[in-house]
Design a protein around this nucleic acid. Structure first.
Lengths: 208, 208
DNA sequence: ACCGAAAGCGAGGAATCCCTCGTAGCCTAC
DNA sequence: GTAGGCTACGAGGGATTCCTCGCTTTCGGT
């Protein structure tokens, strides 16, 4: 728990080129430390050491430990939002965007599953982060629902519900099969998730 | 992190009736505290207070904080194993056991989702617990695969893989939709999960 | 009623951990 | 070249947590 002043804003904005690099070193070092030690044992001392930095310098850039975690989490969140945007921005049938989106989500997580687990499950998520999280999720659901509604090959009964289920399935199964070692390679996993969600969507056809 | 002697065995076995009740008070108190405060802030002091007990007495029954958590987690694990056993013990079509199993899993989690989240995601899971976890999972997969193989209404191509996907989907979606408040009531959630997994299984038919 | 053992008590030791603050080095603009 | 701000340092304060240990209270059989 942070004992210091509240807030997660950066303490000072770097002006010299040197300090920009230092900030980057802290963030990437923190990613390594959190992934290896988890949240609780990922101490600020360790993060500073991993960044090749003194503890005092670290606190020139971040007001507290959680602020570093927030930066990491937000980066992942924005990456995800971008991927969703890229897959769902233009209208096209689910047959096209479903495999693409699944593959993108898996790719985003295959990178460093343990870190994501720490960021979004183990660590405490500040309200600010949670709000953005929900927003990205809600946007994705609404966009996907719209695509389903105008899908010429697919007539699902309740697009909102179907979209939520499909997106939840993609993300949940991705988390599950990348975090623990279930020896399911990326290609097979993508295949299985696409099979499952496609089958589901086809079952949700409106009876006519 | 535990500073004390390693191991998670109970420190002493109760002999008087009084102490059996005390042990129970500790476990139920810990469940409340972990659910409310999470793992890190669920201190042994708080647990002792919730159990109406002094900290010293608590350590007469458990060698360290994690040992209490292990008891809670194992209880849930065994409950799950029983539910799986009850649903998959005798051969019958997926049409019958799939809704039953889904409903049972959801019922087990609807109880206290926050506690399960703490037990299996937030808290560190000792190897002993992880081993049992994998064993229960593997048993369930193998049993379900056997059922799928002998299912007269369903001819899935790779029963092992299909069973793993189905079970993973049931558990993952249950966790997801019970932990965060997604205003999906139990009945609808069951329905959706059954729809999804059934649709998946029917897609996995062996071409003949 | 008595006694040995079981159960209960809680102040405090030892170990971390987060973060501050006084000090020292470095860089850029002039 | 030098002044003044920007960056880096790291010992240690303050807070928190897990767990121990010496002592007291309660129980159950005789």
């Amino acid at each position: 728990m942070p004992r210091s002043s509240s807030g997660y804003q950066p303490r000072k904005t770097p002006v010299q080129r040197r300090s920009w690099r230092t900030r980057e070193r802290i963030v990437t070092g923190a990613a390594r430390v959190f992934a290896e030690y988890g949240y609780a044992a990922g101490t600020t001392d360790r993060i500073a050491a991993a960044a090749g930095l003194s503890i005092g310098s670290l606190y020139q850039y971040f007001p507290n430990k959680d602020a570093i975690l927030v930066v990491l989490a937000q980066a992942h969140l924005e990456q995800t939002a971008e991927a969703v945007e890229a897959c769902l921005s233009r209208p096209r049938p689910a047959r096209e965007w479903l495999p693409e989106l699944t593959s993108a989500v898996i790719r985003l997580h295959a990178d460093n599953p343990r870190l994501h687990q720490v960021l979004f499950e183990e660590a405490p998520r500040p309200p600010q982060l949670l709000a953005r999280f929900r927003q990205v999720e809600q946007d994705a659901v609404e966009t996907a629902a719209a695509l389903l509604r105008s899908d010429p090959e697919m007539h699902v009964d309740q697009p909102e519900l179907a979209a939520r289920m499909v997106l939840a399935t993609i993300e949940s199964l991705t988390h599950r099969f990348t975090s623990r070692s279930h020896h399911l390679d990326t290609a097979h996993l993508t295949n299985q998730i696409v099979t499952m969600t496609t089958a589901y969507l086809q079952t949700c056809r409106t009876p006519r």
